[in-house]
């Protein structure tokens, strides 16, 4: 964990309610699947947001406005600073990827997969991505994944773009491994349906974000685990749904 004061260099809307923020001053030590906890004005608890990218001293995050904290974030301007705890959580296990890993993201579960895809491609893997959204207007980052060289499938629940249905409807017969992030029902369905091994990133309400308060505990097959410190990424076979 690092405590870093980061300076906003960009903060713009990707859709009606999803924003991309870039912050300078990062030590560049975040791994894919890790998250940061941001202190916001007038709020007691920090807000956890996944790392979307961390390169060249710039930390990128993508957030959806759902409440007081994220609504406040969208009004922050270039030059404003944020106090962040960074490099939190275990991150994805890149060694498990095999040759042709599949990355599956739903909604604001998509962002952490970007840095993961980038790292996997650097390692010479053939990366496929399934991005699931409710409807066409909510789609973001499709082009960014393509630009990395991933093979991309987009699903929309209402069929307004790409394949109609959920990410699980677009699941291929085989892949060497899967990495997923998204809403809990999606992850549960995925773990049930995927015949190949994989891991998923979970969310829980957090008190601290670094393992001290036991606020985020879940029961797994290997006993009680803290989502913030032992996770947020857990192997499929560890989880109890």
């Amino acid at each position: 964990m690092n405590n870093e004061i980061l300076t906003i260099t960009e903060n713009r809307a990707l859709t009606d309610s999803v924003y991309l923020m870039r912050l300078a001053g990062s030590r560049g030590e975040n791994r894919p699947g890790q998250f940061s906890e941001f202190r916001l004005e007038g709020l007691f608890l920090r807000r956890p947001i996944s790392v979307c990218d961390d390169e060249g001293g710039v930390l990128s995050i993508i957030y959806k406005t759902v409440g007081r904290g994220t609504e406040q974030m969208k009004f922050l301007k270039e030059g404003d600073t944020l106090d962040a705890l960074t490099c939190l959580g275990n991150g994805y296990d890149l060694d498990a990827a095999g040759e042709s890993p599949l990355l599956i993201g739903g909604g604001v579960g998509v962002p952490p997969l970007y840095m993961l895809a980038k790292e996997l491609i650097k390692k010479g893997k053939k990366v496929s991505v399934i991005l699931g959204f409710n409807t066409r207007s909510e789609i973001f980052f499709e082009d960014e994944f393509r630009a990395l060289g991933c093979s991309v499938t987009v699903t929309t629940a209402d069929g307004s773009y790409g394949a109609r249905g959920f990410v699980t409807d677009a699941l291929p017969e085989t892949a060497s491994y899967f990495y997923a992030c998204g809403p809990k029902p999606m992850l549960a369905a995925l773990c049930e349906k995927a015949s190949f091994p994989g891991e998923v990133s979970l969310e829980e309400r957090m008190g601290c974000g670094f393992g001290a308060c036991m606020g985020c505990s879940i029961m797994t097959k290997g006993g009680a685990k803290r989502v913030c410190k032992d996770g947020p990424v857990f192997k499929k076979e560890e989880l109890i749904w």
Binding site: L43, F44, L45, R205, G207, C213, G215, C216, S217, I218
Partner: peptide, 15 residues
């Protein structure tokens, strides 16, 4: 869980 809630200048925990 949820075991944690945000409050004005504080928090609730039910660990």
């Amino acid at each position: 869980t949820p075991r944690i809630a945000e409050c004005t200048a504080g928090m609730i925990n039910a660990v």
